[in-house]
Design a protein around this nucleic acid. Structure first.
Length: 204
DNA sequence: ACATTAAGTGATT
DNA sequence: AATCACTTAATGT
């Protein structure tokens, strides 16, 4: 599956050094403060990366999808640092784990590895800028709509199985506020609300 | 039928 | 926009 991305010799190196791990939906892959010992590449499924503040508030940073890797890992792994973020399996997930010890060597040895890392870094950085923009400049209702939309694309379904409480957590807001915003969206025929479920309508 | 959890609402900061 | 206190509705046992 990684064939078109990496050169043959690198694929061999991956085969001998990397391991594949499978996770179930909801599994915590890494938490804040844990040591990072490998670079994860998503083979299938979706990985959610978020930050947690000291009072337990959570804020969604981005999703990592198939053939992508988590750029935060790079900034952490250079010095064998602790993770600054929390990563959770958003769906059933299959990860290719590459020991960080190989990073330096591979960067010099394999051009396709280097460009893969660079490409991901750039993409991730842009995603982060987007979420910063949202938090800084957009109102919460716009953030909520954006969240619902990306959630829908990520799960490939317009039916979102989340409580208002969970959504509030992801957006670092509170349940009541999310409930009221969703209620407005429902009035505008943008969504349908059920218990633990939200149906997105095409008007959104 | 009852307990538990999700969602809705008004008031307050 | 967040928090509190309270109500109402849905769901599990």
């Amino acid at each position: 599956m990684l064939n078109p991305i990496f050169e043959p010799t690198l694929l061999q190196a991956i085969a001998t050094h990397a391991q594949v791990l499978n996770y179930n939906e909801g599994d915590i892959i890494i938490n804040i403060g844990q040591k990072i010992k490998a670079i994860p590449i998503v083979l299938s499924g979706v990985l959610k990366v978020s930050r947690i503040d000291d009072t337990g508030h959570e804020i969604l940073l981005y999703y990592v999808q198939a053939k992508e890797t988590c750029a935060m890992t790079f900034s952490c792994c250079m010095q064998e640092n602790m993770s600054e973020v929390k990563a959770v399996a958003e769906s059933d997930l299959s990860l290719l784990l590459i020991p960080i010890a190989l990073m330096d060597q591979w960067m010099m040895q394999y051009p396709t590895w280097k460009s893969f890392i660079m490409k991901n870094f750039k993409y991730r950085f842009n995603e982060l800028l987007k979420t910063i923009d949202q938090i800084a400049f957009q109102r919460l209702d716009e953030r909520l709509i954006h969240f619902l939309k990306t959630k829908a694309t990520v799960t490939n379904s317009s039916l979102i199985n989340l409580s208002h409480e969970k959504i509030a957590m992801e957006l670092a807001s509170s349940r009541e506020v999310i409930s009221r915003l969703l209620k407005k969206l429902e009035m505008d025929k943008k969504v349908l609300l059920y218990r633990n479920q939200i149906k997105l309508l095409k008007e959104l």
